[in-house]
Simulated assay, not measured.
Amino acid sequence: MISVFGSANMDLVAYVSTAPRRGETVTGRAFRAVPGGKGANQAIAVARAGAGAAFLGAVGADEFGPVLREALAGAGVDVTRLRTVPGPSGIAHIVVDGDGGNSIIVIPGANGTVTGPDAADLAAIRRSDALLLQLELPMDAVVAAATQAEVPVVLTPAPARELPGELLAAVGLLIPNEHEAAALTGLADPQESLAALLDLVPEVVITLGAAGAIYGSRSGERARVPAPPVRAVDTTAAGDTFAGALAVARAEGRPHRDALRFATAAAALSVQREGAGPSMPARAEIEATLAATTEEER
C-alpha cells in the first residue's frame, strides 16, 4: 500500500493550437472538465500501476466534490480519509497547446483547508510502504505529514518553491523535473542540479521530459534512462504518472534502472492521451511498452 497526501482538483482544460499571449484572445479546439490535482493524479497512477493506493486530502461541498471522490474510488483508490469540507473544491485552469505543452493556474479551494494529518490519517500512512507528497497543499500540512510519517517519504516539489529544512530532513526521495531542479538549486545543468540536491536529500530523480530521467544517491549510485519516442498530446499528468509508477516499482524492489524504465514508460503512455487522471496507464500497458522497448533495444 502506498499513501498519497495531497491535492484533488477539477481540471478545466482548454486545448488550443497556440497559447494566448497577454491581452490576446484565441479560439480553442476543445474543452474538458476532468478530475486532477497532483495528489489525486499520483494516487490514481499508483493504483493503475498495480499497487494499493490510499488518498488523504479534501474536496469541497460543491458539484465537483463527488466527481473527484468517484474518480479516485473508481480507479481503485481507498478514499476513506478523503474529507468533504464546506466551500468549493480545488480548481486548475489549464491551457494545452498544439505541442502538448501546458500552462496552469491552480485555485486551492478545499485543498487550502488541509492543516495536516490527524491521528487516523497517521495510522493509515504508517501502514503504508511509502508516503507520496507534493506542494499543492499548505506547506505546514506537507511538513507535518512528512515529519510524522514514519515510512519512506517521496516528494514531488511542485509547484516549485523554497523547501524548509525540516521537510528536506524527512524526505528520502525527491522527484523534481528539470525546471524545478533548476529553481531549487539555481543550476541549469541537470547533472549539476542532481549533485547539489544530493546535499539535501539521500536520493534524487530528475525527470527530463522527452530525454528521460536521471537518478542519483548519496552512496554514489547513478542511472540514466531514455524516454520512449512518442508524440505528446497533453503533458499535464506526465510528472505525476512518473512519480506514482516509480513508487510502485520501488515498493516492488526493482533495481534503480528498472524502476526508472517502468516509470518512464508509464509517463510516455500518459502524454499520448488528453486529460490528467484519465491518461494514467494500466499495469498491463506499462509492461507491454517496456517489453516493446526492450525488444527494440536488442
Rank of each mutant, 00 (worst) to 15 (best):
I2A: 11
I2N: 11
V4R: 02
G6Y: 11
A14I: 14
A19E: 13
T27C: 10
N41V: 12
R48H: 15
R48Q: 12
G50M: 08
L56R: 11
L56C: 10
A58T: 14
V59H: 02
A61Q: 13
D62K: 13
V67S: 01
L68N: 01
A71V: 00
I94G: 09
D97G: 11
I104E: 14
N111A: 07
D118T: 04
A120T: 14
A120R: 09
A123K: 11
I125F: 00
R127E: 14
S128L: 04
L131A: 00
L132M: 07
L137R: 15
V143R: 09
A144T: 07
V151D: 08
P152M: 04
T156L: 04
P159D: 09
R161H: 10
L163E: 11
A169F: 01
G172D: 15
L174S: 04
E178R: 15
H179C: 08
A181I: 05
A183K: 02
A195H: 11
L197I: 11
V201E: 06
E203G: 01
I206D: 10
I206C: 08
I214S: 05
Y215K: 07
G216C: 01
S217P: 12
E221R: 12
D234M: 10
T235H: 03
G239M: 03
A245N: 09
A247P: 12
V248F: 00
A249K: 02
A265M: 01
A265Q: 01
S270A: 15
A282M: 03
R283Q: 13
A291W: 09
T293K: 06
